[in-house]
Amino acid sequence: MRLIPVVAASVVASTAAYGLALAADVTLELVEPITEYKIYVAENTEELVKDTEEFVAAIKAGDVEKAKSLFAPTRTSYEAVEPIAELFSDLDVSIDARADDYEQGEKDPKFTGFHRIEYVLWEQNTTDGLGEYADQLQADVTDLNDRINSLTFPPEVVVGGAAALMEEVAATKISGEEDRYSRTDLWDFQANFDGSEKIFELLKPIVSEQDPDFVAKVQANFDQVDETLAKYKTDHGFESYEKLTDSDRALLASRVNTLAEDLSTLRGKLGLD
């Protein structure tokens, strides 16, 4: 793993590109939020391992309805920590790749993970043939949990993660293409927002010192997204993505883009460009 030295070599501060107004020195105050973020991520991947066990057990018991009901809630702890989880390209592919990533689409045996299982559960309404994929998923999330525990989190990935999650939403969630078989996209949506807002909340005390207006604006946008999503909450989670009205979709799209834009300035504000 050359990642850390690569990150460590980041001394060529490119503050000139942002002008003096946005240039900032790295502060030791970032240690606490980065540590707290690692705790948050570690708790999520621990939860992911646990929830996957239950999900896999339902699949192996041949209980299609139970497996379907556990699909979305199991995924959320992965979606919330994607900025870090995605650093491991092999596991990201194995756990969360979509059929589009393969030339043969769903026919490709290498199409594995959550979306393979989702495809079979919803499109074929069975658990037949899923045993191996379920075992693989369990092994992968366990491996992910271990790797994350021993990873020194790169500060720029943590800080940049708030915007990265919003970009992810903008690119694959607004369109409803991520969970195309189950239509459970709103669960992922909420998890991506929660993961992004967590980073923002941890950085807020530092950023609000230099730019309180920015903090207020971002917070207002997060609040509006939360309110909009709350309309689609049910007793057990979220409505199908198809229930999302055009006007709410448009509202979410605009807030997501604004959030992605605003949050992408965090690295510069914190001297981590």
Binding site: P5, A8, A9, S10, V12, L30, T35, K38, F153
Partner: peptide, 19 residues
Amino acid sequence: AAATPTLRKLLGPLSEYKF
């Protein structure tokens, strides 16, 4: 650049040690 220690380079190690 790689040979020059900076505060930025220590942020990751400090956070990980705190963890």
